[in-house]
Amino acid sequence: MAHPRILVFSGSARTGSHNARLASLVGQRLGENGAEVSSISLRDFPMPLYDGDLENSEGVPENAVALKRLIQQHHGVFIASPEYNAGVTPLLKNVIDWISRVSEPSEPRMAAYKGRVFALGSASTSPFGGIRGLANLRLVLETGVGALVIPEMIAVPNAADAFDPSGGLANERAAASLSAMIRALIAEASLRMSKAA
């Protein structure tokens, strides 16, 4: 059986990020279930804050083009997205917006978001698990950039105590929703294997 390629990253680049831990757990589970996983950090793709004047004078930053191409080499993308003030982090929104400006002449607009499937999760130090940020991110991806986002999500509340020593989720309900998301993402990514390069 061929293995779907799935890209995994976190919307936080801070040391000790709970969302980076979630991303690495998801990456591990995807790998165990037959996916070929690439894990990256947005720290390695720095981009200036989006500004239309900058785009006019200098074009889109190289890192946005690089990340767009990397996304296009995958059948699925998982994003662990922290919630800041009931919304998406500036770091992640900035990356999504820049990438929305990149497409080759032969491609549809927002090409990186087409032809693959997305899954979302969030870890938060609050008891709500970042669910409001996830709702906002879903709107941006679906309505804003036309991406297909699976309904299964993973929200990890009280993140400071949520991971057991082996990096798994201590809470049973969270662990069950994680497994459901992993299954759905692999199934949906596999369906697209003939489409993406």
Partner: peptide, 18 residues
């Protein structure tokens, strides 16, 4: 409105202020 949501510039400003 960028991609149906707040701009990175404005969100960044609000988050720092918060």
């Amino acid at each position: 409105e960028y991609n149906t949501a707040i701009t990175p510039l404005l969100k960044n400003t609000l988050d720092w202020l918060s």
